[in-house]
Structures are given as structure tokens and as C-alpha cells.
Design a protein around this nucleic acid. Structure first.
Lengths: 259, 259
DNA sequence: GAGTGGATTTCGCAT
DNA sequence: ATGCGAAGTCCACTC
């Protein structure tokens, strides 16, 4: 397999050629794509069978496996990275077995026709950046606590209390403790209940008046009632605006922002 | 684009040929794969940028989009089904924009080199069956309640109580109400807390002694303490064994199994 | 259209 | 390795 081209293509190869090429590709840890008629068995955490049909089979350099049908965002079968491959040919069937340990599971894919086989040698050093994650919201609040509430002073973040971790923890302008639970999308009942538990936990420790604030772009309807019942607050905040605040501020560590 | 072949391949096509082919493919709602050097911008619920690199770009018949790097099980960028495509070429750049409404979001992928373009016409009617899901565990319990506990009689399943739905609901041999929470993998604190809420809710309604049982292959360590504290029970059950029980029984509707 | 919960979720991080 | 929570989670189902 020459190294100088980013891809190497076999159109309608024989199963023998396909088998040899797949063997070489897996042993050299190259990514490849097979399009052909196949059937699949999966055994591991669960089991599945997929009967004959034409699909896209992708193996990547790190040994992750994807089997895609012609529709749907999700693969019908897959294996996360780290699989080991066994390729064989028997009669008119090319079989690739992908085995993973921890958890032990395997995919067996059988082809009786291969329409396309391409071995890839992709160079990809391009940086990937994601904005407006929950982490961005947390950073924005640490940079500008006033976006949550005027007079809010932060004490710490990611504080461990019994049920888990408090996203942000501070004191309001009247000196009450404030526990903040951040959600990057509509906050539901579970978020409210989680916050309630945190507030209770903090109350038990600090023995001071303690408020809880949900910070999220929206509050689910059922969650609203619960919020009122439990005496918690809600502050609407757009994750994209938070991302802007974060990008505008020079990059500093989170640690630089709390007292 | 002829219809008689499952795939049509362009190796190292010009950007012009690639653009025309992509336009035709999207307008005919065909799946296609592009391998080439590209950069990507995503805007919607969040935002992301991906700098130049060689990647696999897949569009499926239902308008789902996947952009895969040479490593990793997950796509670096994607769009679920239903996207609308706008393809254009400007200078030496081929641009495909995939737009989705509800939520409004878009991916823009730009290619300056295309190594492979293949248009697919895959026939795939093969049935897919998955075993050992949580549903299988529920079915197995309905078929053979004794795998949970000797003398257990079931009343109903998927019962609505205030916090949500009870997986399975019955009476034990001593006449106590039993609420069962099923997890197909290790049950954590959240499962225990959820069950506790259900038990409380049922107690409030039936005004009778009520037990809660977690049915799962394993119980998380932190969850164990909580379980004891809250006075709940745990029954170990392997989802694969449940799947066997279900497969052995002739297929009947779930409704046939409860009193 | 919103809310709820499962998934072979995966992934990352901390213990 | 296990536990725990986020994710542009997606998806199916119900209200």
C-alpha cells in the first residue's frame, strides 16, 4: 500500500482482493471504508442481528468501527476505539470480526459483495473548538457573577457536598449562601431536585440561610412548579451569550476567578 | 446519475465535478461520501470550528450528516436527519451548507481538495433486532416474576405515579406492595433515589406497606449505602439471561402477562 | 411542540 | 477499574 496518496480505491473488487486489502489495512492501522452487501452480528453488553443489506462499513485508525445504513444519524452497529480485527474469507463470504475487551464484545460483519473499498491515509491536525458548553456558562458566571444576580460574590465552584458537586457556590448581597446549578439547555425536574438536595446539604453544613438558583436558558413547565414549591430561584441565561463573554475575556484559568 | 449500480465513484475529481455531483445527489436525495481536505463551522445550539484537515463527509438519504476524522467513534460534526443542503463553489473552494430547522442550526463544510466522491444507491431491507435491552428485562420479569423473588405477583407495569413511571408493580408473598426499578447496567444513586420517590408516592396512595426493589446486573458502591439507608432491596439479574427467557417464550404482547 | 427516560449511549474526569 | 455527570447527545413515546 503506497503511502504517498491520501486514498487508495478499489471499485467492485473481488472478495479475495478485498480480504487482502482489509488484512493489510488493519495490520497497518489504517482507516478504511467498505461499501457492500453484508450481514452483522453483535454480542457483548447486549446482542443484535442485522440481516442482509447494502451498507457502509468504516474502520478507523484507532480501531473504532461504524456500520451505517443509508438512513439515520446513528450507526446501526459500532464498536468504540480499541478493537482488534480478524479477517477471513470462506467460500464466497468475507468476514471481519472486531473484538474489544473491557467490556468484552464483538462485531462480526460478513460481506458477499463488495462494491467499494477505500483505504485512507488522512492527515488531520486541524484544531477543533466547541463553544457554548456548560463549561462556558460556568466560566462566564465566574468572570461576571452579576449576569446571575446583582451583588453576587462567588466563593468557589465544583464544590463537593454529599450528593455530588455544586457547580458554583457564593454569597448574595444580603449575605445568604447561594448554590447555583447550571444547565446549558432547558432545566427539568431532575435539575431542580438535584439543586434542592445540594441546598439542603449546604444548609446542614453552614447553618445559615441558603438559596438555590437554577441558571439555564429555560425552565421546563413541570420543573417550574417544583421550583416554587421548593423555594428555589431561576435565572435565565443563554449559553451562547456566555460563550461570548468567555471569548471576550483573555484566557485565564478558572482558578483565577474565585475568591 | 445511472440507477443500475449501487455505487458511483469519482476518484480525485475536480471541485467542479464534485460540486455538480453533490448538487445532483442532494437534489435526488441520494447518500454520498466525500473524502477530502476540509474545514467546518457549526452554529446552532452551540458553535464549533474545525480547522483544515482531511476527513470523511457522509450525507445520507434522509439528510443526516456526519463528519468523521480518522480517529474516534463519534463524528466531530454532524446533523441529524432532515437537513437541507446548499452547495456552491467559489474560487477553489467547494462549500456544502446543511441547514436544519427546529432547532435552527447549520453546518458549513468547505473543501479545497476532494480525493474521493462516491454516490450510493444502497438497497437495505435487512431487519435489525436488538436483544438484552431494558425492555427485555421487563418482559422477562413479566413472564417469570419468580426470577425477581419467589411468590411475587405482578399487578401492572409502566404505572404512572407522580414523579414518573414505575417499571413494574406487584405484590409480594406477604401481601406487601412491591415497586420494581429496572436497570440494564449498574444501578447508581440516581436509580435508588428514583425508586425511593416511587415507593413514597405509592405509599401515599395505597396506604399499605410498600417495598422497593432495584433489579440490575450490579449495584454501584455509593448506591449500596443509600439503598440500605432508604430500606430498599436489590436483586441481581443479567440482562442477557432475561433476553434468553424472552426469546424462549413465544412472542406475546406485554399486556398478556399482567393480571 | 414540550417533557421524560433509555441507550451496546460515549467520553472525560476524579477516586 | 469504578463512579458520576455532561453531551450540539439522539431517539421514541406521551401529553
Amino acid at each position: 500500500m503506497p503511502d504517498d496518496r491520501p486514498i487508495f480505491v478499489y471499485e467492485y473488487p473481488s472478495l479475495e482482493v478485498a480480504a487482502e486489502t482489509v488484512k493489510a489495512a488493519t495490520s497497518e492501522r489504517r482507516a478504511f471504508i467498505v461499501v457492500g452487501n453484508c450481514w452483522v452480528e453483535y454480542r457483548g453488553r447486549a446482542s443484535s442481528t442485522l440481516k442482509k443489506g447494502e451498507r457502509i462499513f468504516i474502520v478507523k485508525e484507532d480501531g473504532s468501527v461504524l456500520i451505517h445504513r443509508s438512513k439515520g444519524y446513528e450507526p446501526v452497529n459500532w464498536q468504540p476505539s480499541g478493537s482488534i480485527f480478524y479477517t477471513s474469507i470462506k467460500g464466497n463470504v468475507l468476514t471481519v470480526k472486531a473484538v474489544r475487551r473491557a467490556p468484552r464484545e464483538s462485531i462480526v460483519i460478513n460481506f458477499d459483495k463488495v462494491y467499494l473499498l477505500t483505504v485512507l491515509n488522512l492527515i488531520d491536525e486541524g484544531e477543533f473548538c466547541l463553544y457554548a458548553s456548560e463549561e462556558d456558562m460556568q466560566k462566564a458566571i465566574l468572570i461576571q457573577p452579576e449576569i446571575v444576580e446583582e451583588g453576587l460574590k462567588l466563593i468557589t465552584y465544583e464544590k463537593k457536598v454529599e450528593p455530588g458537586f455544586i457547580d458554583v457556590y457564593g454569597v448574595d448581597k444580603k449575605g445568604r449562601m447561594v448554590v447555583i446549578e447550571i444547565k446549558r439547555k432547558t432545566a427539568g425536574k431532575d435539575a431542580v431536585l438535584q439543586l434542592a438536595r445540594y441546598v439542603d446539604s449546604v444548609k446542614g453544613i453552614v447553618n445559615r440561610e441558603t438559596r438555590g438558583i437554577i441558571v439555564a436558558p429555560q425552565l421546563a413547565k413541570g420543573a417550574q412548579k417544583l421550583l416554587v414549591t421548593l423555594g428555589l430561584d431561576f435565572k435565565q441565561l443563554d449559553p451562547r451569550k456566555c460563550a461570548e463573554i468567555v471569548r471576550k475575556t483573555e484566557t485565564r484559568k478558572l482558578e483565577d476567578f474565585y475568591l
